[in-house]
Amino acid sequence: MFRVISKEEIAPKFHRFVVEAPEIARKHKPGQFVMVLPTETGERIPLTIAASDPAAGTITLVVQEVGKTTMGMALMAAGEGFVSVVGPLGTPTHIEKFGTVVCVGGGAGIAPMLPIAGGLRRAGNRVLSILGGRTQELVILRAEMEAVSDEIVYTTDDGSFGRKGLVTHALAALVESHGKPDLVVAIGPAIMMKAVAEMTRPLAIPTLASLNSIMVDGTGMCGACRIAVDGQTKFVCVDGPEFDAHKVDFDLLIKRLRMYLPEEQVAREKFLANHECRAMAGVARG
């Protein structure tokens, strides 16, 4: 069992878990992920590592409630544990001194961006961050990202915080004001990463995207995560999760992410029915 040391809700439906996993903490490099199996009858889901502390032997995971598995995790408390946490998986981010790097993080994608931005900054890059969310409170980890960014721009869909609009608008403005960066790293919903790639492609700005496909084992065994990069089939779990965003077939990724939508719906409804009382109590407490 992998013990949860602490757990806090850092934004509505966003939970930060600090998990005891000394071997993983020791080996983690920015860009890598773990496969987590929360319970015996659960499913294995990939979660990118948001931080690691080799001395304490812990890793930090930020989990957004989207389906049955993550909703179940949200109900866990410190002291409880996950049945399985395995990693660090995937190829680490290639970090060197590029010059100026723009880190574009959207929604839950801000968490995996944190160690990458930190690594790039430590390598001597000027890190300009653009963080976006639907509304102010969903732009997570602001203080942490500010600590590793030279400049930071926020966007919200509803204009409640920072610029109103999408991260791509802010990226265009940044390129306008600061000139072309040497690298853009985009992590967020597939549709956001696709938009970033389409924006930077005509400008020939090298762009990396960290992909979030469906996985079962996470070690190259099942092939569920396969995508097309430059027409070649790649496994996100071992060849990625980061790829040249200009070569990724995002439309295919978006379609493949929809594979189990009906089943996800069934599982979510069953979960909600089972936890109705608790949810109602939560509403009552306000």
Binding site: T41, R44, Y260, A267
Partner: peptide, 11 residues
């Protein structure tokens, strides 16, 4: 095969 009693689907 036991979905949705277990959480991993197959179709």
């Amino acid at each position: 095969y036991d979905f949705p009693r277990t959480d991993t689907p197959v179709r």
